[in-house]
Design a binder for these strands. Sequence first.
RNA 1: CGGGGCGUAGCGCAGCCUGGUAGCGCAUCUGUUUUGGGAACAGAGGGUCGUAGGUUCGAAUCCUAUCGCCCCGACCA
Length: 445
Amino acid sequence: MRLSRYFLPIIKETPSEAAIASHRLMLRAGMIRQAQAGIYSWLPMGFKVLRRLENIVHEEQIRAGHHPMLMPTLQSADLWRESGRYEAYGEEMLRITDRHGRDMLYGPTNEELITDIFKNAVGSYKDLPMTLYHIQWKFRDEVRPRFGVMRGREFFMKDGYNFDIDEDAARHAYNRHMVSYIRTYERMGLKAIPMRADSGPIGGDNTHEFLVLADTGESEVFYDSNILDLHLGDREVDYDNWDGVKAICDEWTTPYARTDETHDAAIWADVPADRQQVSRAIEVGQIFYFGTKYSDALGALVDDGKGARKAVHMGSHGIGVSRLIGAIIEAFHDDKGIIWPEAVTPFHAGIVNLKQGDTDTDATCDQLYQGLIKAGLDPLYDDRDERAGGKFATMDLIGLPWRITVGPRGLKNGVVELTSRKTGESEEMSPQAAIARITEIYAQV
RNA sequence: CGGGGCGUAGCGCAGCCUGGUAGCGCAUCUGUUUUGGGAACAGAGGGUCGUAGGUUCGAAUCCUAUCGCCCCGACCA
């Protein structure tokens, strides 16, 4: 993309309403604009990042054998009356009445709807196990939205639901989700720690939250520093292997890691003092096993093959996709701007032309731009007629991991400059070498 | 939902107390000179002063109502 033709409304000054780094930077970098309290428009670059995260989530869910689908944002109140949650959910649920006076609601989650779909189509144990998910906008009418997309009222979330014949199978589904989530966050460059959590209003007795360490996090967490050393990497995972999946979960759940809600001082005391870490963290996902709560209420029964009809065992599993962008920025930024991990960056590299209109720099930038595109990458070429300082400041702010600087000084020797946003280190090389290097870097992401 | 604050140009703000031509900085546009870390000069455009009603010869300013937004707290993916 040529910056001169893009829509990237950058703000030089700090917007007064933004209290934390991610909110401030998303506004300044032209990623979002607020529409109402807790409701945002996603401008082209923010939308790009959102799509990238969404794609990673899809890939990992599909890899785990889960089926993508899409349910509507608006749901019927009647279904929620059946489960008893229409009254129980309270003020956070946005209730709407249509022209015929029918009660509807903007879905805060989808247990009722998915269970209804499931029970009308599935009647036998032979169809199990099954896990369905979608990534859709949700609405929860928070009393006090804040922190930009971290605590919006409207938010983009992956929510998945497993249907299994009994508790053992459902526990495997739970474990499978834990592993797929670990992998998902790791791919995004994040260290998200699964922690024992409270079950909250959704119900159930087995749940973990995934938390990303960040000073601005809303939760206080206690963990054994050993857990930071765990990596899934490119380990082969057979998601149908119950024991193998459970072994990975055991690995991640053995070191102590809890939120303040479930913190247990007695167990904590057994963690060696030099490994005891207390920190703030942002919740970016949660998995639940809740048994037959909804299948009982909504009559989701299957034939068990022995002549009986049994309520299916279920769980629900969520990833806050829009919130993740905030969490990633909280984890990766400095005083100049965002520092995107390669896996989620909106553009793979930025090209800075220091002397727009100069025959040589223009030609070299075009060569780099075309070369990167041919290599299957997505560069952002700052071809505006701006001074060097402004272009550098823009690149630093929007935080692309790699910057190629093209100026007359270097071109005299046939070189351009490749700079890492993370380390700030630069290296001179030929344009061809720069393309090759960046291609190689992204081949490993 | 309790407490506090704010709505004036795209952004940040002054003006309001004490009613009388709507301002400043940044941004935008034009021109000239500049050009390796947010340039200088000259000029230009841009406003239902959140909305509605009231008081007044006259309202951004005073009064009433209303809507919106932010911050702290309690609550939440």
